[in-house]
Design a protein around this nucleic acid. Sequence first.
DNA 1: CAAGAATTATGAACCC
DNA 2: GGGTTCATAATTCTTG
Lengths: 93, 93, 93, 93
Amino acid sequence: MALDAVATSASPETDKVGGVAADRLRGLIDRIERLEEERKALASDIKDIYAEAKSAGFDVKVLRQLIRIRKQEPAEVEEQETLLDVYRRALGM
Amino acid sequence: MALDAVATSASPETDKVGGVAADRLRGLIDRIERLEEERKALASDIKDIYAEAKSAGFDVKVLRQLIRIRKQEPAEVEEQETLLDVYRRALGM
Amino acid sequence: MALDAVATSASPETDKVGGVAADRLRGLIDRIERLEEERKALASDIKDIYAEAKSAGFDVKVLRQLIRIRKQEPAEVEEQETLLDVYRRALGM
Amino acid sequence: MALDAVATSASPETDKVGGVAADRLRGLIDRIERLEEERKALASDIKDIYAEAKSAGFDVKVLRQLIRIRKQEPAEVEEQETLLDVYRRALGM
DNA sequence: CAAGAATTATGAACCC
DNA sequence: GGGTTCATAATTCTTG
């Protein structure tokens, strides 16, 4: 059971509620929640750009597709290399 | 049809390639891709914090659950917990 | 709130514990759990075949890759067509 | 599929091309793909049941949670609930 | 058992 | 606004 943070505390500052390192926990949660806030803000910004694109007459769905394809392209190159490797191995080379 | 940006450009600055407002398109894509980069970086940071939490002895799965709960409205949390309880009783659990 | 099944019961057979249609719930859960059992069994069978393949001298990782590629190929054909379409539209054709 | 170059057979039973026991390989792949088909069909059936549950007024998300809980060992369920509780108290929630 | 891939589930966005 | 598809998150499984 992952109770190290619960069970091993000793000092007065870290050992707070129910034996858990409450301060530490709070810190972690705060940091995560702040970063998630920022993430959400970025998502919103991106949405705005798509809206702008739409009102400029671009087809948003096609735009998303372009972005997706550009993102996948490097992965696909790698996939091709892997495939080549598979063939090599299948042929015992 | 959402092809205004394809069909209506006129000035020399808009650099029409095959009828597309290519510069405008490029700009939009650049901005989106940059923001998505930032998003990815934040996701990575968050992952790091969970790793840190884990090595401090916290149960990551429970931590995620906690974050999820904090994100919901309290009323909604209550509702789901109640419903789960109802179902459990119905099954005699 | 999704409480139809909780709140609308009337007949003695369907209205059991805590007002929920307990029998109905049990039935659904049973069916799901049975199907998941079967799924698990199949997963186990598949694992066995990989083990067999391995002891026959095949490289399991490569085998998995082959299966994955065979599965993806039809999807990729379609993807290519979509991509072509995107380019066509971008060029106003 | 793009393995023709690997599989262009010559002799009937052993059929080794480039050192690979092609028939054996084909058999393994067939068996795996068939089982994966069945798996997919079961997944589809399960989806249908959730849809049925939904239209009967059950909360699908809670239903999934319930199934998840039933799959765990009771001790494990207890443990996670306890831990969540501990964390919540630590945060004063 | 830790890292990473692959599957599955949740959440968001779009169309009707 | 409801339902369906699409994108992201999270868990599970595999491999080193």
